[in-house]
Design a protein around this nucleic acid. Structure first.
Lengths: 205, 205
DNA sequence: AACTGAAGTGGAACGTGTTCCTATTTTAGA
DNA sequence: TCTAAAATAGGAACACGTTCCACTTCAGTT
């Protein structure tokens, strides 16, 4: 058992020994983002990704066992970036609710500025089946922890179960709102509204 | 332009003139449910559905323009059944929260008793893109109205915007929980728990 | 009863995700 | 340095969603 959890799934960065391999992985994800950004989910075709990343199709599948794994991994990388950006700058807003709303709206605006990319990543996330559970779980944790940190920026706050539950519910609403926006059911404004209402319902302190 | 809205989408029951057509539509949805129930999303193959429904592939596509439309329409029919069953029997529970929790848990249990079918329908619903917006919207409305009715069983209650917002949030959480269960990220017990916590947070009266 | 357009049949064909195979290159260890 | 194993390249082949086409059947009109 030298190989960890990810053996059955995407090759995580930690699993990759050589610099060349890390570079290949990066090239693949870059190509994925570029194609998604330009043409959305349908434009991310495995042959195109392979070609753009200058990698054989078989190699692509060795790194990411399916299109969904690939896209969810891309989402994960993007999300980690967002999260670390967020970690740096202070969060403005007096109340807990305000801070959460600010952060979510800012993040949502960011995603809406690249609709095709958001469509691709969101749909992959939602379509993922059990085989992608590990990656999905990662993203879910990241989202929840991002939210709890925004709720309680002081590092010393001890999270109750209720805090975590609230963060989870907010995350759920955010995802639903995003799906609604991606599928053209709701406008950007409505999406923001939807999140704001939910947060205010949940965080009335 | 004799054909209404649904021209670009699935043929709704109302659009179908002859009894033979209504019957074909029914056969197709029955076949879909049967296949989904047996093998989930992947087992619902358009050729199999056509064969099982005793209909040509082209005809299947005339009735439902894509696999996703087909599955979402099946979901809609199932959901309407659930809803009308629910409408008959009285809802037990003293508080609003209790009633909502009871109904959601009962419904969830029902879905969990046929995991493959639930997987197929849920994934189709989540994967749907803009072209299925009409059908998805229908289902969303049905869910929200089902929830508000459970919240206020007396017909005379006047719904506030907040009531509707709460119903929507609960619906979002329910969907997320379902997706989590379908993808093996959470157990049936956790799913119930998740819903219960959210409802209690939102309906503390 | 014959005519006409819509609906249905049967099946070929195409695109893209996925798998698989062989030859070549790279890497690690002796 | 040499060699075996692992990784990659290149690409054929397969599966299933989707499209398309030629033909037949059906329903309504004259």
């Amino acid at each position: 058992m030298g190989v960890p959890v990810s053996s059955a799934n995407s090759l995580a960065v930690e699993d990759l020994g050589s610099a060349a391999q890390r570079d290949r992985r990066k090239r693949i994800l870059d190509a994925t983002i570029a194609l998604a950004s330009q043409g959305g989910f349908d434009a991310v075709q495995m042959r195109s990704v392979a070609e753009k990343a200058d990698v054989a199709l078989g190699t692509l599948y060795r790194y990411f066992p399916s299109k969904i794994h690939l896209l969810v991994s891309a989402l994960q990388r993007e999300f980690e970036r967002t999260e670390s950006t967020l970690r740096e700058r202070p969060i403005d807003g007096d109340t807990t609710a305000d801070r959460v709303i600010n952060v979510l709206k800012r993040t949502t605006r960011g995603m809406q500025s690249d609709p095709q990319l958001t469509e691709a990543l969101t749909r992959a996330f939602m379509f993922a089946d059990a085989s992608v559970a590990a990656e999905i779980h990662q993203v879910g944790m990241l989202l929840t922890s991002m939210l709890t940190r925004v709720m309680y920026p002081e590092g010393d706050h001890r999270l109750t179960e209720e805090d975590v539950a609230i963060a989870r519910v907010i995350g759920d609403v955010w995802l639903s709102a995003l799906v609604g926006w991606v599928t053209g059911r709701s406008s950007a404004a409505e999406t923001g509204q939807q999140i704001e209402v939910a947060v205010k319902l949940l965080l009335r302190d």
